[in-house]
């Protein structure tokens, strides 16, 4: 016969401060999250919002795979705490294509084959997006510098440079049209 027993809760340890609320404005949408203060923006995007485009590679600001745009500037989201981003505008790779149409950078990456495994690609594209938003006429050196903090282990760099320049061209011709 079933017997009702009172289960004793084992004494547990909790480390660190508790979760706290934060408002994030991501890809033109408002979100309210509860995260530990130590949660990075990268983990908040990936785990709390399911936006897994930004990748975790080094988790210490050495590879650029987690690059997103915060208030117009490219940042390493693994070195940014989610709670630091209160009231800030965050843009990720998921919002680049609009109305089912790829952004010029995305189109250029496909045409130039500017990737291999693709794991660094979202970060490369976001770094270049920040560049092109600010400078529509970049030189080859500008493009190289823009992605100099984005590692690509497959070595797609020459084609990434070409894609950056090609995207600038596409954007300029669209503007001119």
């Amino acid at each position: 016969m079933a017997k009702a027993t009172k289960t004793k809760r084992a004494s547990v340890t909790v480390r660190g401060p508790h979760k706290m609320p934060v408002h994030l404005f991501v890809n033109r949408q408002d979100y309210e999250l509860h995260v530990e203060p130590r949660r990075t923006l990268l983990d908040a995007l990936r785990k709390d919002l399911g936006l897994t485009g930004a990748k975790k590679v080094c988790d210490e600001g050495t590879c650029g795979a987690c690059t997103v745009i915060v208030d117009g500037k490219p940042v390493y989201s693994c070195l940014t705490l989610a709670i630091e981003c209160e009231e800030k505008s965050i843009e990720t790779i998921e919002a680049l294509a609009q109305d089912g149409k790829l952004h010029a950078l995305q189109q250029a990456f496909i045409e130039e084959d500017a990737y291999q495994c693709g794991f660094c690609t979202p970060g490369q594209i976001m770094s270049l997006k920040a560049l092109l938003d600010e400078n529509p006429n970049p030189t080859l050196d500008d493009v190289k510098r823009a992605v100099s903090g984005n590692l690509c282990r497959c070595g797609a760099y020459p084609k990434i440079f070409r894609a950056g320049l090609r995207a600038a061209e596409i954007l300029r011709s669209k503007k001119g049209a």
């Binding site: 897994t52 990720t92 496909i110 045409e111």
Partner: peptide, 21 residues
């Protein structure tokens, strides 16, 4: 021939093992 899965790779749609939730 550009990659047949190019769009997935440039939009963040491509799900890697790391991305499985």
């Amino acid at each position: 021939t550009p990659r047949v899965d190019g769009s997935e790779r440039v939009t963040g749609d491509a799900k890697y093992t790391y991305d499985i939730q």
